[in-house]
């Protein structure tokens, strides 16, 4: 993925999360969708902008920690309704 492709993906994901927020969709599913989009954006920034994909071992480790963090946030979002 080139830098410009990465940028396009980030813009698309940002627009998608804004669209969900604007649509007035609420509740747990909207929250999970928004967080999943944020997760995707974070992965793109890490692997493309920060070029972490050059270090596959570390990239996997970071992805795991980020995944745990997102799972924590999602869990709390679900618990909070």
């Amino acid at each position: 993925m080139s830098i410009t492709r990465a940028w396009a993906v980030l813009m698309a994901l940002s627009l998608a999360s804004t669209a969900i927020a604007w649509s007035g969709a609420g509740g747990v599913w909207a929250a999970l969708a928004i967080l999943t989009l944020a997760w995707g954006k974070a992965q793109v920034i890490l692997n493309r902008y920060l070029r972490l994909s050059q270090a596959p071992d570390i990239s996997r480790g970071v992805a795991l920690v980020l995944g745990l963090f997102m799972a924590g946030v999602m869990g709390l979002a679900v618990a909070g309704g």
Binding site: L10, S14, S17, I20, A21, S23, G24, A25, G26, G27, A30, A31, I34, L35, L37, A38, K41, A42, I45, L46, Y49, L50, V73, A77, G80, G81
Partner: peptide, 26 residues
């Protein structure tokens, strides 16, 4: 320098949905 900037970017894409968007439609 760019790495620092990307970190700022990365923090924002996580911070923004959690603070601004979560539960907004409810």
């Amino acid at each position: 320098g760019a790495m620092f900037w990307h970190m700022v970017d990365l923090v924002w894409v996580l911070l923004f949905p959690i603070i601004y968007l979560l539960g907004a439609g409810a």
